[in-house]
Amino acid sequence: MTNTSTIPRGDGRSATPGRRRDGDRRAGRPSGMPPWLVPYVLLVPGLLVIAGLLLYPLIQMIIMSFQKVGLRQIRGVPAEWVGGDNYSQVFANEIFWSSLRNTVLFAVITVTLTLVLGTAVGTLLNKLSGRMSLFVVIGIMSAWAVPPVAQGVIWRWLFDADAGIINWTLNLLPDWLSNLLFGRSDWTGEPWLNDAITIYIVLIICVVWASFPFIAVSVLAGLKGIPSELYEAAKVDGSTPWRTFRKITFPLLKPVFSVLTILSIIWNFKVFSQLYVLMNGPTNREAFNLSMFSFAEAFRSPPKMGSGAAIAVVLTLLLLVVTSVYVRQIVKTEEL
């Protein structure tokens, strides 16, 4: 016999057992969005912000590099499309090639010095006690926290020809020692920031001083994750400090060094603020890098913003090529 009894519900109506109510069916129904799509949907707001702040200006810069943009266009006259003329003029300019040389040489020297000094300081911090390590970290990170413009102001003042501490300190050296080291004894009024070579010497010191703390702290964080037993075993085997670093520390910190190298390359290829302050504006063409050359072309009278944009595009492509080659080598190494 079929049981047709009903069970009373709270609202006075009855429901047949074994049947699910409509509300229950709706509650158990899966949402219309596939689970694999949820992470991508959550990324949309961030991607929109990135597109608005980075992608849109980049596209506009590329478009401008194929146009003639000057004072008339700033006043509202439509820009004239010139095709690749801006690039032809840039590549035919001797200042572009000297700026490219300065950019590459500066990046190679600065990246190397920053990584070597940062690694040495990070290794030293790992050897110090907790309080002393914290004290040194706070001290060096103060330099890293200084804004780029302020960095340029500090080092421009230190190397000032008339009131700079560097010239005053060099004059304190005994004449025989100064002649032995530098071939001269009088440093009064030495114009460090007039010649392209000395400008870049000061710029390298400035950038390395402000950049190595980040490398040091990153290396210190990586060293904290290496088991101490490995170093104890190496010490028992009679390994030298250099061999220990080469066989244990460097291989285990290779991912950290790879990321730090890429970041350093990007940062040092784009150096502008410190050089602008040290040179007191785009005054010495021999000391231009690509960033300064782009600024000078775009904003010095008469402004040629199309040419400035073309130089910026070349710099961006150069950075993409360098970083992509380096990342590819990292991926190949990891696969092996």
Results as ranks from 00 to 15, higher is better:
S99W: 01
Y40F: 09
S31K: 00
T244D: 11
T240Q: 10
K304L: 05
P34F: 06
G189H: 02
I311D: 01
R9Y: 01
I62D: 02
P17W: 02
V327Q: 10
N280S: 14
K235G: 09
P78E: 00
S294A: 15
V202T: 05
I266Q: 15
G46N: 06
W168R: 14
I62W: 08
N126S: 13
P303D: 09
Y200C: 03
F295E: 06
R101K: 14
N102H: 13
V313L: 05
G70P: 04
I215R: 10
I199G: 11
L128M: 15
N126P: 04
A287G: 10
I248W: 15
P45W: 06
Q329R: 15
A15Q: 14
R9K: 14
I59T: 10
F182G: 02
S129M: 05
N3E: 10
S31M: 03
L172M: 11
G130F: 12
T169Q: 12
A150M: 09
P191T: 06
I62R: 09
T240R: 15
N93P: 00
V111E: 04
A27L: 09
R246S: 11
L223N: 05
F182Q: 02
G122N: 09
S211G: 02
T244Y: 14
S98C: 01
R156S: 13
E229A: 14
R328C: 00
A312L: 00
L172K: 14
R243D: 08
L319I: 11
V44G: 10
N86I: 03
L320C: 14
V77W: 05
G222K: 09
S5H: 04
G189L: 06
S185G: 07
G183K: 08
P303V: 07
L177C: 04
G281C: 07
I262L: 15
L263A: 13
S301H: 09
G308F: 05
T119L: 01
P57C: 11
F135Y: 07
G83I: 06
Y276R: 04
S273N: 14
M33V: 15
G46E: 01
I140G: 02
M292R: 06
Y231F: 15
V146T: 13
S307E: 13
I154T: 06
P17S: 05
L170K: 03
T188S: 11
I248A: 10
L230I: 02
A221P: 00
L71G: 05
P78V: 03
A296E: 04
G83K: 05
F66Y: 13
D22Q: 02
I7H: 07
G122L: 08
M279F: 00
L125Y: 01
N102T: 08
T114S: 12
L315S: 11
A120C: 07
F293M: 11
S294W: 09
V90K: 12
L319T: 06
F159N: 06
Q89A: 12
D85E: 15
R131W: 14
E94I: 00
D22C: 00
A210C: 08
P17M: 08
Y200Q: 05
V111N: 10
R25I: 07
V236E: 04
S258W: 03
V256A: 08
V322H: 12
P282M: 11
P39R: 04
L125N: 06
S228F: 04
P255D: 01
G32A: 12
L278Y: 08
S291M: 14
Y200S: 04
L134K: 13
W155M: 08
T123E: 06
L263T: 02
Y40I: 03
D24S: 00
P174F: 13
G183V: 12
L58T: 14
L275A: 04
T333S: 15
